[in-house]
Design a protein around this nucleic acid. Structure first.
Length: 156
DNA sequence: TTTCTTACA
DNA sequence: TGTAAGGA
């Protein structure tokens, strides 16, 4: 169980994932020149030197933003316009993430099936979503203490 | 090899 | 924005 949870956590742990300018460039189709220019314009806050080197490092978050800006740029927006649009979407992503992370209390294995703890159903019961390898998702109510015991306390 | 800054096209 | 120069 802990193994599975670790896998999930790693999958969602983008914080440690960083890119160099050449990598980000080929990933997004935005030239290194543009990336440096955008940075100077403060459209992307991606100057993060972790080590003593003077090479830029970009976070996954920046990758997302650059990708969005590229999208809007291709759609005909000006650079400033694209940045604004990307910023707006980024806010949405924050809200969605908050919603999801609030709703998901953790993972569990029930009857040998992957399950997600969706939180309190009422004062005594917790709602669990059971996800079989194949077939439809179904739900199950467990006493709070049992749900608590089965759930690996990890957050995404 | 890759990235950095500066400067010119 | 692309590209060249000259270092790191």
């Amino acid at each position: 169980m802990a193994e599975f949870t670790d896998q999930i956590r790693q999958t969602f742990d983008f914080h440690r994932l960083v890119f160099r300018i050449g990598e980000l460039s080929s990933m997004t189709g935005v030239s290194a020149r543009q990336l440096r220019y955008w940075e100077k314009k403060e459209l992307i806050a991606s100057r993060e030197r972790e080590d003593g080197q003077q090479a830029r490092v970009y976070t996954f978050k920046t990758f997302i933003k650059v990708s969005m800006m590229k999208y809007f740029l291709d759609a005909g927006y000006t650079l400033a316009g694209a940045a604004k649009q990307a910023q707006a979407r980024e806010e949405n992503v924050k809200h969605i993430h908050r919603f999801v992370s609030t709703g998901m209390k953790g993972f569990a294995m029930i009857d040998n099936q992957m399950a997600i703890n969706l939180g309190a159903f009422d004062d005594t019961q917790t709602l669990m979503a059971l996800l079989p390898d194949d077939g439809p998702i179904h739900y199950k109510l467990l006493p709070n203490d049992e749900a608590q015991r089965l759930t690996d306390a990890s957050r995404v």
